[in-house]
Design a protein around this nucleic acid. Structure first.
Lengths: 339, 339
DNA sequence: TTGAAAGCGTTACCAA
DNA sequence: TTGGTAACGCTTTCAA
């Protein structure tokens, strides 16, 4: 009676040597078609799965991808992006008998340790790099570790890794236009962490849109936390010429900002229009529901995992561009009361 | 020059056989203290990390724990619990050279496949079982797979797995008392999915508290989504005797419920008091900030991972009880306008 | 196209 | 307390 069947059991059942079983399993050339069929049938019948440890020992592959997420413990909070992103990754990996190794670390130091450990211990064959920073040190670190990787977004440093991107510029421009068409002139942007590349790019496009329209762009940078989103809102509303519309760098900040407005007796969108970015489900149910840009994290996951796997298995992989982010107009934007 | 150093390099450097290196590495008996010291020193110097594939081949261990999260794609959304939970797990695993394998799956069928695959492929040594359901089929599935596991919460079916629990009864009672002391009499509970055990337990404690006070408990079950939270709120406010306070099964539903109230022109907490459960950071920044029960997901992660590792390594592990959930009173609760 | 055999880097066992 | 050697399950030569 079987523990787990091994390659020897399959070889015996198919009446061949285990070397052939290995060739057949891995779709390698040099196996007669009917022999291959017989082998695969025997494997199927015995319910044989090759043991990843044994494979890894000779092939030097882990059959796993690594995702390391850094989260300041004080900001440790729901991120609408990751569960859907990982679901996308999983879809690709499950089909190929691979797994995702996930690590959540509190700071840069343990982040570097985590990459190093996963690489040294050969626990993964490559990394998915999310939340790209300006001058992101991870690119260099991972290259130095001799590992493969794919970045979500285009790094601003030399990188040999394939890139998955989504255009936000059009979306940001559409969002700014939407507000201007409603009659807004004083539009502020509560931007995210300036060290994060995607936040910076969005801020730049916002500034471009505003200057194209001959308007002044007011930007308050934050760390993406609802706390700083609230503080930025207070500051903006206290200023000499408070904005009539605020574009927040993410939905949680927008929600916090709306609360500040409410607390001050301002009505949204009557007295203040508000938008998020990277629309999350919760944005649909707050009052008023949030105008935002739609993202699709699952798409990111599918694309990034496929690209990384191709890189690992074939030694090269193309960049991929996802469809541009789309404007979703809901109830938190309206013409200004006093334009 | 070294690829990765192997156990042989260490053995040679320390002038012993590789068998001894293995014993020393694994803190096994039968190595002279000074020999052990010499070996560890040599290992340190060479920067040797044992290869998990090679270890796994003989020890039949994966040195990995599995977490499989099922999320209906339509409800795929931020869950404040997981990033902090995983950070806790990671803390325990990193110290021991182990990793977390994470899978996010859309339905029960792919969930079962994921458990089976991870077990058959020996990718993990045990599972962390979260979001326990009533009559949870996973207990039986995992036992049948011959795998170890730990459950977050006490299953209502026979289980041989250790259990990590946190008492919510006291917290729910305190929350109900808080509302009653404010003068509320008509208190409703928008509960979570009845199939989820923790939701059911909280509902039962709510009913107990209400009946102890001689009050009628109104309960509307949902699937934990903000959407159904909003719908439940509509239904409650439309009823003949609308509640003056609503306890929501989680913070996102409470936020959605508040929006419904706002939309109807009700003021929170003036016309309607509202509370969440399982306090999330975002609850601090909505307006008004949410009264809730505090949970600490990191604690869950630490306890569950430690317990599971002990089970795997020593064959047995004790149940662990985390400190009870605490009431956090913020601004969303106040005396009723017309009691 | 196939079989036999030699690793891969550990752990486990048996002598010494 | 130590060393030598045989697994572990697979991939990869090298012959046939």
């Amino acid at each position: 009676m079987a523990l787990q069947p091994t390659i020897n059991d399959v070889a015996r059942a198919a009446g061949v040597s285990k070397g052939l079983v290995s060739l057949a399993l891995n779709d390698r050339a040099g196996v007669a078609p009917d022999t291959r069929a017989r082998i695969l049938e025997a494997a199927e019948e015995l319910g044989w799965h090759p043991n990843p440890s044994a494979r890894g020992l000779t092939s030097r592959r882990a059959y796993a991808l690594g995702l390391i997420v850094r989260r300041d413990p004080s900001i440790i909070e729901a991120d609408p992006f990751f569960s859907a992103f990982i679901a996308g990754v999983e879809t690709v990996l499950a089909d190929r008998g691979q797994v995702l190794v996930l690590s959540v670390v509190p700071d840069v130091e343990s982040e570097a340790k985590a990459y190093t450990r996963l690489a040294h211990d050969k626990r993964v064959d490559g990394f998915l790099i999310t939340d790209l920073l300006a001058d992101d040190h991870r690119i260099h670190l991972i290259e130095g570790l001799g590992m493969h990787a794919v970045t979500l977004g285009e790094p601003n440093v030399d990188s040999t890794f394939p890139v998955v991107t989504r255009d936000y510029d059009k979306g940001i421009a559409a969002l700014a236009d939407h507000l201007m068409e409603l009659g807004h002139r004083r539009i502020a942007h509560v931007s995210g962490d300036e060290r994060m590349l995607h936040g910076r790019l969005r801020r730049e496009q916002f500034e471009r849109s505003m200057s194209d329209a001959g308007l002044q762009a007011v930007v308050v940078p934050t760390d993406f936390s609802p706390e700083q989103g609230a503080a930025a809102t207070e500051a903006l509303l206290d200023s000499a010429e408070p904005p009539t519309a605020i574009i927040y760098g993410n939905d949680p900040m927008a929600i916090a900002g709306m609360s500040v407005a409410h607390r001050r007796g301002l009505r949204v969108p009557g007295d203040l229009s508000v938008t998020g970015l990277d629309g999350s489900q919760i944005g649909t149910y707050v009052y008023p529901s949030l105008t935002t840009l739609r993202n699709d994290p699952t798409e990111w996951g599918l694309a990034a995992a496929s690209s990384l796997l191709r890189l690992i298995e074939e030694g090269a992989s193309d960049d991929v561009a996802l469809p541009p982010a789309e404007l979703v107009v809901r109830a938190s934007t309206a013409p200004p009361a006093r334009p």
